[in-house]
Design a protein around this nucleic acid. Structure first.
Lengths: 322, 322
DNA sequence: CGCCGTTGATGAATCGTTTCATAAATAAGA
DNA sequence: TCTTATTTATGAAACGATTCATCAACGGCG
């Protein structure tokens, strides 16, 4: 019935009397309107999809919070999904998003090859890439300058006098892994030192367990680096734990610097120096970019790439006590 | 067209030839079926709703993973939402779930009063309460035995000779906060000691920041307790950091025991003794209970309450080095 | 008294999928 | 060849909210 719809969506265009009558009926019958019917009629849902590579990582949890905040402000819901770094899971979730006719999608792609968002374009679902820089040709994106982050970390360590620095990192396919190293190497060049100042320590995943592996390998290295730069805080936590256990003092024997500045970096026993990667802000800005792309002029839209500046947060893991 | 539907849902009931023809058309047109139309027809969605009180807490992240796993196995999606411990947000999300005609809902209620799931019952949406024990009258539930958890923690500390134990905890409305204390007090009675062995230290929230507050207050206490039992690991992390900073040695000067056994308890510099609260398993079992309630006999269903046993995980934060 | 303008209520059509009843085509048996 | 049985294809109805065109009611004014 059309009147009911008016009562719910345009209460001012309906007379006081009928409005009351309809409201009463709604109460009595326990009526709850069907979102799927609304969606079907509208042709699109009232949700944003957010697909990240690891929901367990506090970094993405923070990003999701930022997104959600912005979305709720715009009256939209968010569905957060986990591709678990699997390209096939990523594709499956994007298809799901397409079937749900999501209003828009925020995507942290698993790898930097291909354009996984093509499934979405066919349905005219706009997509914003988060936490990865991509060209402005196809989609908007919000990322942080990882080269700068690496540079900041490198300068900090070099200024403190370190001359042998380990770089602990996950799979090289991740652009971030490469960019952060590039930044570190640039700092090394700036300081007029040779590239073999940096010791590469690859691990499989960006998690604490891999950090512990790396820790054991670090202890065995000779000469042992005096500092380690980790591509992610979880790695740094694992490393600190292992080396602390082996009696290596942080920061005196080994300075440790992480990346992302997750909550637990600050909460750590020896608070971790880290490069602050503004997770919540990335999430928020990406959602806002998406909303802008949705809202008024569907045509006159130019894709944007926002790049945020990371920030060095110095804590005790790199600063010996006075 | 009915045939298309058959090709997609019952491909064996359609001839080889037409199937191929339809598939080809689907390819060419880039057809993606509309989930909202399916839902409308079916009268219910193919999703489970999961509403927790803090998506940032790794405990709930783990719980969500368990739920998701079980749901995906059953061909259902999961939408995770965050009530942020606000009863009004909780009610809003439950209404949202009702409008979406969720297949079922997993709920970690904000407080133990009332029955927030009533909005769902009216739509015949089954609800399973997670991580809180409730009677079996209205809904199923999966929780852990928090009294036992407190008991285990208490016995462990008392056996180690502690005679003055702080209990750091968030709002008392949470049943868990009460239960864990009850367990602790039972251990104290068992040991034939008086109830004022336990020093109550209330804080506002179950997070690291509140833990730091508690840490400062602990240091100021006199006589200072020799051990502290925290209602949650995040509190314990905050406490350890603060007291470590102040030169109090853990575990020698102060033994610390947490609750939940989140990933970061083990990853901590001084690994944290904790009561393992089986998050992923709670999530998984709750989802399975929900699926069972959904599946075959809608009527002959009796609500169940599963109570899991927590487990003490002893690490260095309570065991002085030999 | 009748005409017109305004406001508010009504009903039909629509979105895309599924289901079910029916129709057509094919195969088998008499 | 004709009937019956079986497989496969077709068409219409339904789900529930929204929209839009139409219609009724009412007050003002000539």
């Amino acid at each position: 019935m059309g009147t009911v719809s008016n009562v719910l969506n345009r209460p001012d265009q309906v007379s006081e009397q009928t409005r009351a009558r309809v409201q009463a009926a709604i109460e009595i019958l326990g009526y709850v309107r069907s979102e799927s019917a609304r969606q079907l009629r509208a042709g699109r849902s009232r949700m944003l999809g957010l697909l990240v590579t690891d929901t367990g990582n506090p970094f993405f949890a923070a990003l999701a919070r930022g997104t959600e905040e912005a979305a709720v402000r715009a009256g939209l819901g968010v569905m957060v999904c986990n591709s678990a770094e699997s390209p096939s899971a990523e594709q499956a979730y994007l298809s799901l998003f397409a079937e749900q006719r999501m209003r828009g999608v925020l995507l942290a792609p698993v790898d930097s090859h291909g354009a996984p968002w093509h499934v979405l374009s066919r349905q005219n679902i706009p997509c914003v890439v988060v936490d990865r820089a991509v060209g402005e040709d196809e989609v908007c994106s919000v990322a942080a300058d990882d080269v700068l982050g690496g540079l900041l970390a490198g300068r900090h360590l070099l200024k403190a006098g370190h001359r042998r620095i380990a770089y602990v990192r996950g799979p090289e396919q991740l652009r971030q892994v490469r960019d952060r190293r590039d930044g570190l190497l640039r700092a090394v060049r700036e300081a007029g030192m040779s590239a073999d100042t940096v010791v590469d320590v690859p691990v499989h995943r960006h998690d604490v367990r891999s950090g512990r592996d790396a820790g054991h390998r670090l202890i065995g290295l000779s000469p042992r680096p005096s500092a380690v730069f980790c591509a992610n805080d979880l790695l740094a936590l694992g490393i600190m734990q292992t080396v602390f256990d082996a009696g290596v003092r942080v920061p005196d024997d080994l300075a440790v610097i992480g990346y992302d500045d997750i909550e637990f970096a600050e909460a750590c026993l020896i608070p971790l120096t880290s490069v602050r990667h503004p997770a919540a802000e990335i999430g928020r800005l990406a959602a806002e970019l998406l909303l802008k792309e949705l809202d008024p002029a569907p045509e006159g839209h130019r894709h944007e790439s926002i790049v945020l500046q990371p920030e060095l947060v110095v804590r005790r893991s790199t600063v010996p006590r006075a």
